[in-house]
């Protein structure tokens, strides 16, 4: 699936650690240029599929796929789910190549482009979550929180299995390194639980295993935003 989506400028400013809606003369123009550049080069793509789940004591098995979501946090988040949607989305490699060429960009322009891309991939993910919610509704189910591996207490090591289940290397050109870095870098994967009833979103920072240390949280920023 390919989406035409726009950078969320407010989120970009948030990611840059800025308050307010403006950076002031000169910098606003550079930010506008970064946003335009990001939207021009990004090739947004996403894929998601619905799977049934089967819960055991310390493991949620995603039926019909080889990966299983082990670990207490994953089990807590998905307890009581009837199924899950597995999702991957990416801005494609054109963006990484542009960042590769970023040696010709000033550091600030690199930073702004990076923030714009981070915003855009979140916008893309939001749009997928809305589609998943609609698909869940047609099945009489409710979509739960958006759980990203590496955030929300979901370990990064589920990433390879999740990508395999979506055939993401072939469909989206997305893979991940041994350390869990997504390639292309502006990509994300997520798990959305599907429940019989509306489900409380407990994916926030307070439930994150890294909550004690996280500097983002101290600054009022969440990695899930």
């Amino acid at each position: 699936m390919t989406s035409a989506c726009k950078v969320d400028r407010a989120l970009v400013l948030h990611l840059l650690g800025c308050t307010g809606a403006s950076l002031g003369s000169g910098l606003d123009e550079r930010l506008d240029a970064a946003v335009e550049r990001c939207e021009r080069i990004a090739q947004p793509k996403s894929a998601w599929r619905l799977f049934k789940t089967r819960a055991s004591r310390d493991c949620i098995e995603v039926v019909g796929t080889s990966p299983a979501l082990a670990g207490s946090r994953a089990c807590e988040q998905l307890a009581g789910s009837r199924g899950v949607a597995l999702l991957a989305c990416t801005l494609g490699d054109a963006f990484d190549r542009e960042q590769g060429d970023a040696a010709q960009l000033a550091v600030l322009d690199q930073l702004m482009l990076d923030a714009a891309a981070s915003s855009l991939v979140q916008v893309l993910a939001r749009s997928c979550r809305a589609e998943i919610a609609r698909a869940a509704t047609t099945r009489g189910l409710f979509a739960g929180a958006f759980l990203e591996p590496g955030c929300s207490g979901i370990p990064l090591d589920v990433q390879p299995g999740l990508l395999r289940a979506l055939d993401a290397q072939r469909v989206l050109g997305v893979s991940c390194t041994a350390y869990g870095n997504m390639v292309p870098s502006k990509s994300l994967t997520a798990i959305v639980g599907l429940f019989d009833e509306e489900h409380a979103d407990n994916s926030g920072c307070e439930n994150c295993s890294f909550s004690t240390y996280c500097e983002l949280k101290k600054r009022g920023v969440s990695c899930t935003q």
Partner: peptide, 11 residues
């Protein structure tokens, strides 16, 4: 000043 202004000055 925020990070963008800091970097612009550094540039």
């Amino acid at each position: 000043y925020f990070l963008p202004q800091l970097i612009a000055s550094a540039e």
